[in-house]
Nucleic acid binder design. Structure first.
Length: 499
RNA sequence: GCGCCUGUAGCUCAGUGGUAGAGCAUUCGACUUUUAAUCGAAUGGCCGUUGGUUCAAUUCCAACCAGGCGCACCA
């Protein structure tokens, strides 16, 4: 028999023995007078003498995280997830039955306790148990108390174990919840309406990415899991909702990395009458505000870096960034004209040993140069603005420069956190952009945008000047919780199936 | 998809071409204020899977499975 089998058998035997004592081994409810967190918060400052004077009686419950038994007495450590408290068990302080229950408990079981608060010799806040109630059995052995669970695969596949034994992991997800609440509060306070748009879409639009395909049986229709809510949210702006936002999942059928999970959470919002400059100001305020509310500071530590999220953030044009980085790297002057000429840009990329597709134009190549040379160096929050039109099928061009759009990406910690632009609202130009994407698609780029006739029709009804933005919520959580991998901030990241 | 690394007890980790090791956990014994409780004893292994080399493989080699990191794709 293996150690695992043996330990499971022992726990089952203990459960059988509990049953033989006449207990309901899966009781239906237990009424707590206080949670453990409430007890700790209310009494952690109280001294031994104060507690003896007050005689505070409580009824509480939790999972057993430690058992230290010695003969006719012992200690349990109970957790309610937020806080821990010690319980003192004495044979002569409780009914015989309750003490027998104590002898059949295993690490991980759920119990309820009645008793009085006191402080031990070592000054630990403790419940002196007068009753012990069995609530549920943990039939499988838990990871070790001291080293905890470090195997990342088990942490992701069996997140419940991670949450039981690794308080830091639990804290990440509590912070995640606060971050999302703070974002929602920020948007709502600014008069934004929260909406939900389709996750299953007949045309996967609003981003450049490969979608997941699914099928509706009754309609016998293929559908795509959305890669972005963008085109639907802008339809709402056409419909007269001037400020809308959605916080929800997007699905992109692409590689997995420390910064990419196939499903990820995005805040996306649209504001009529705003342009990308207004969105930059709003974004830096939002990120600073959310950081303050969720973690209490704008100064964060991310890996080896100290990052200040205090507004205003740096601003850098993409062409300038690419030009300067390429000039430095090649040790010669690269001009703006070089980056705007296909052949010159391609030659520069070649010198930089960057791969360029034959179909890539000057704008795409400039973006490639930027991504290779600049992206991971943008540690402090930086708006990279004025992107090439070629890589921005839904953004509005600059009035004096049709090759450039009013768009920015926000970089923090070396990766992209947000992407925003003045929305293209000219239906004729939008049709031309879609057609360019179709050409790209015909050339084999499965991520290129499809034609969306209904979206063009919506624009024909009139989209007011509008600014729109997407914020990668998971990445924001990574930054604010100092998590190096997106999987550390997603409760159940996608894993390969295992038999 | 490519490259590098990892997989040994429930957990955390050592280790070796010749019958497999520790700590915690588990079991038994002692113990009525411990807190990584302590003390004594014991149990627990298809060394990821399948092949190959070898007298002999957990160890060397290959493929596969799973994971991590990097690249690519992208947010």
């Amino acid at each position: 028999m293996t150690s695992l089998d043996e330990q499971i058998l022992q726990r089952r035997t203990n459960l059988d023995e509990l049953s033989k004592l006449g207990l309901e081994i899966y009781p239906r409810k237990f009424e707590r007078r206080h949670t453990i967190a409430e007890l700790v918060e209310a009494h952690v400052q109280r001294t031994h003498d104060e507690l003896e004077g007050d005689r505070i009686e409580t009824i509480t419950g939790g999972r057993i995280l430690a058992i230290r038994a010695f003969g006719k007495a012992g200690f349990l450590v109970l957790s309610d997830g937020h806080a821990k408290i010690q319980v003192y068990i004495r044979m002569d302080s409780m009914p015989e039955l309750d003490f027998k229950i104590h002898q059949l408990l295993d690490f991980g079981d759920w119990v309820g306790v009645e008793g009085r608060l006191f402080r031990t010799k070592t000054n630990e806040l403790t419940i002196w148990a007068s009753r012990l109630h069995f609530l549920a059995k943990c039939l499988l052995p838990l990871p070790e108390k001291w080293h905890g669970l470090t195997d990342v695969e088990t942490r992701y596949r069996q997140r419940y174990l991670d949450l039981i034994v690794n308080p830091d992991s639990r804290r990440v997800f509590e912070t995640r919840s606060r971050i999302i609440a703070a974002v929602r509060e920020f948007m709502t306070a600014r008069g934004y309406l929260e909406v939900e748009t389709p996750m299953m879409q007949p045309i996967a639009g609003g981003a450049i990415a490969r979608p997941f395909v699914t099928h509706h049986n009754a309609l016998d229709m293929d559908l795509y899991l959305r890669i972005a809510p963008e085109l639907y949210l802008k339809r709402l702006t056409v419909g007269g909702f001037e400020k809308v936002f959605e916080i929800n999942r997007n699905f992109r059928n692409e590689g997995i990395s420390t910064q990419h999970n196939p499903e990820f959470t995005m805040l996306e919002f649209y504001e009529a009458y705003a342009d990308y400059q207004a969105l930059m100001r709003m974004t830096e305020e939002m990120i600073a505000t959310v950081a303050r509310r969720a973690i209490g500071t704008e100064q964060i530590v991310f890996g080896d870096h100290q990052i200040s999220l205090q507004a205003p953030f740096a601003r850098l044009s993409l062409r300038d960034a690419a030009r300067e980085a390429a000039s430095r790297r090649l040790n010669r002057e690269v001009t703006d004209a070089d980056l705007r000429t296909r052949d010159a840009a391609a030659a520069i990329a070649a010198h930089l040993a960057l791969e360029v597709d034959p179909g890539d134009g000057a704008g795409k190549i400039t973006t490639t140069i930027f991504e290779a040379l600049c992206e991971d160096r943008l540690i402090q929050p930086t708006f990279v603005y004025d992107l090439p039109t070629e890589v921005s099928p839904l953004s509005k061009q600059k009035p004096d420069d049709p090759d450039t759009v009013e768009r920015f990406e926000l970089y923090i910690g070396g990766f992209e956190v947000a992407n925003a632009f003045s929305e293209l609202n000219d239906p004729a130009e939008q049709r031309r952009r879609f057609e360019a994407q179709l050409k790209d698609r015909a050339g084999g780029n499965l991520a290129a945008h499809e034609m969306d006739e209904d979206y063009i029709r919506a624009l024909e009804y009139g989209l007011p000047p509008t600014g729109g933005e997407g914020v990668g919520v998971d990445r924001l959580v990574m930054l604010l919780t100092n998590s190096p991998s997106i999987r550390d901030v997603i409760l159940f990241p996608l894993m390969r199936k295992r038999e």
